[in-house]
């Protein structure tokens, strides 16, 4: 589904990540991990088309989209749940979902909206409310729902659990698992390493813009040095 080959990206001349390579097949979750400032968000935003690519390629379904604008990638089936949620605060929940489906004909909105409401009944209760007035967890649901309106085959999730109550985190993680079951490819950036390792199929760990680990989640969970050195996990937290 998604292949990232030797991707170097950044803002202007400033390099944020170098020579990143990974692949995400359909029906799988790749966890993109690493400390703050490792280049995770930049990598995700480069896949979406918002960050300058200095070298390497982004392939979507075998097609090279490295030079395509974000607007075009959205039409191909790439959707973003951005860092800090970034829902449209001045728009209602319904209107946020409308924008989610903007690349596709309006007559498909209804069915997709029903599916989002089935996944997050809370959003249905709040559909006429201004998005900015909702709680963080509800906003995260909306950010995911908005992305689902874009009929994604590849979902890019930047910080799922940051600032959310544990119950909300569970709801959002369950949603991702359901989406994977439906065949979606998911790239997940996540601060909560234990949760991410528990659900991911593949793992890519960045540190200072470089890949320090790439492999299966199973191997990552067994790699004690990786866990303590780059992912800040202690023995106690692993247990």
């Amino acid at each position: 589904m998604l292949r990232v080959e030797g991707l170097s990206c950044g803002y202007g001349a400033v390099r944020a990540a170098s020579d990143v390579t990974f692949a995400v097949p359909e029906r799988s979750i790749l966890a993109l991990l690493g400390p703050n400032g490792a280049g995770k968000t930049s990598t995700i935003m480069a896949i979406m088309g918002h960050v300058d690519v200095h070298a390497g390629r982004v392939l979507f379904d075998g097609e090279d989209v490295t030079r395509r604008r974000a607007v075009e990638r959205a039409r191909l089936g790439v959707a973003l749940v951005p860092e800090g949620r970034q829902i449209f605060a001045d728009l209602s929940v319904d209107e946020n979902l409308t924008i989610g489906g903007y690349s596709f004909p309006a007559d498909r909105d209804r069915d997709k909206r029903e599916r989002v409401f089935a996944l997050f009944p809370r959003l249905h209760e709040r559909r006429a409310q201004l998005a900015g007035s909702m709680s963080g967890g509800e906003q995260q649901m909306l950010a995911i729902g908005r992305a689902l309106m874009a009929e994604p085959r590849l979902l890019l999730v930047d910080e799922l659990s940051l600032g959310l109550m544990p119950k909300m985190v569970d709801i959002c993680i369950d949603a991702l698992l359901k989406l994977r079951e439906d065949g979606m490819a998911i790239v997940l950036v996540e601060q909560n390493t234990a949760r991410a390792l528990a659900i991911a199929d593949e793992v890519c760990v960045l540190s200072s813009g470089n890949v320090v680990f790439a492999g299966t989640a199973h191997d990552a969970r067994e790699d004690r040095e990786l866990l303590t050195r780059f992912l800040g996990m202690t023995e106690r937290r692993r247990a």
Partner: peptide, 26 residues
């Protein structure tokens, strides 16, 4: 600005142009 898709897209772009572009709003 409230009843048409392009009108809503307009408000979304004012609110956050980058994210609006991520969903295909030019």
């Amino acid at each position: 600005t409230t009843q048409t898709r392009i009108g809503v897209a307009w408000r979304a772009t004012v609110s956050n142009p980058r994210i609006a572009a991520s969903f295909g709003v030019d």
